[in-house]
Structures are given as structure tokens and as C-alpha cells.
Design a protein around this nucleic acid. Sequence first.
DNA 1: GTGACCACCTGGCCGC
DNA 2: TGCGGCCAGGTGGTCA
Length: 272
Amino acid sequence: MPELPEVETVKNTLKELVLNKKIKDANIRYDKIVEYPTSNEFIKDIKNQVIVDIKRRGKWLMFELNDYYLLSHLRMEGKYLIRNINDPYDKHEHVSFTFEDNTQLRYKDTRKFGRMYLYPKDIVYSKKPLNELGLEPWDVNLTSNYLKDKYKNKKLPIKTVLLDQSIIVGIGNIYADEILFLAKINPNTLAKDLKNKDLVNIISYTKDILEKAIKLGGTTIKSYESKEGVHGRFQNELLVHGKVGKCPNCSKEILKIKINGRSTYYCSNCQK
DNA sequence: GTGACCACCTGGCCGC
DNA sequence: TGCGGCCAGGTGGTCA
């Protein structure tokens, strides 16, 4: 999916395109994308709202409106496009927002995994999903002690635990592999068994990698693009994820395994 | 509370 | 060429 850097890139791109636009109508072509409220309420409530800001929390896009927050998760393949009101719909464009200038912001999602919520501003942080999210990578409270406490009973591989959005937000399958490679941690190591220096390294490399990926516009793999025609460049910087061949450190072979059903790439020599 | 497994969907790729 | 099976960057629900 779009992970944190990709969502940040989408956020920044959309801010240039739709900020201060007033939504005069909305259209939901696939109901399940809107998790809350009902489709009818969603359309009724969002009419005449102005997009006053766009923020990000973890992998969630937060469209700040006059009275509401529209939360949008792109999941695996979601993307936003600007279209004209008369442009024909692609079969994978499931939600559209029409502005007063007759342009439309359309949500396109081939696999229909993306989800949206619309909450009044005063309760958005107390409701799912925002109330279940962990710390941002740059949160000053993200310390080795915080991770030690969160990991103390985790009998799961660190690869799996890094993807847990209730601990640290924003890390997905790609960046988890990169973080563990740089921290020289075997992805199968149980989270509870990590040493303090491992936790320090995880925090440090998480910030480094995500910052670098944001600067490069994220990672473009297969279907993900920040918006149509815009490709991230971080895929050129990936060290292990999706690599077959030799480790950039030691020249031993990069292995591909499954951990809890997720493809995982690592070097068995560097990551003992 | 924790962990394993499955479902959600579609399209691309590979082997036969 | 056509078909079946597998795989894909995420998350939530169910069950033991």
C-alpha cells in the first residue's frame, strides 16, 4: 500500500489542487468504501463543506472541512484524481466530490480496499480509527522505553509487530524490511527478545528511512502512484525489499520468506 | 489479551 | 490462446 511517505506525498499534492474548494455534491458508486456514516448521510453532510486543510495521521488522509473531518485510507491501491464533471467514469472510480468550478476529486481503487469515515470535528479523535493509532515516528514520546513496554509481551516476529499501527503508525511491508535491514535485525526475532540497542536502532532508522522516502516522493511499486502520472523515486533507494540477488552489504544472497503471510526480504548474514 | 487465520477484491503473471 | 492458480504494498473480524 501507500505507506506513510506515499500518503504524505498524496497529501501535499492534493493540498495544491483542492484546498479552499467547496464541495457542492458527492457521489458514491461503491457503498462499502464509506465505512461511516451511511452513504446517504455522508453525501448530505459533506455538501457545502469547504476543504480548509489536508492533514495526515499515520496512513490516514484527513480532509479538514468546515464542520467535519473526512478520513480516507488508501489501503493497497487507492489514489485520488482530478477530473472534469463531464469526464466519463473509469470502472474503478468509486467516490467523487464535485466542486463549484465543476471539477471533481475522484477516488479510484482497483481492489476496493480503501475506506472513508466522515466525523464531526469535535469527536473525530475519540472515534475509530484515529483513537486506535500509535505514535508518529517523529513523536518525542517514541522512545526505546515506549517500545520496550509495548513489545514486552509480544511473542510475534518483529517484522509483524512493526506493521502494528497501534504501536508506531505509518510503517508498511516495504519500509519494515528496509528498517530491519539497516538495524541488522533478523525479521523473525520475537519482539519481546529485542535488546535496547535494537529498539534505539529501529526508532532511528524508521525516522531516517521515512524522511528520505518523503523527500523522494515515496515509493512507486506496481499500481501505486501518488496521483496519476506522479511516481515516487524511493524505489531506487530500496536495499532489500523486492530484491533478488546479492546483499548490498556483504554480497550474500537476499532471502525471500513469508512471515505471517507477508513477503519479507532480508540478508541472513547481516541480519542474524 | 494474544496470535493464527481468513476475508475483503481485482488484475498481473506464470506454467501448463 | 486460454485457463487455473498464485501473488500483491493493509486491515479487521473471528475463533481458539
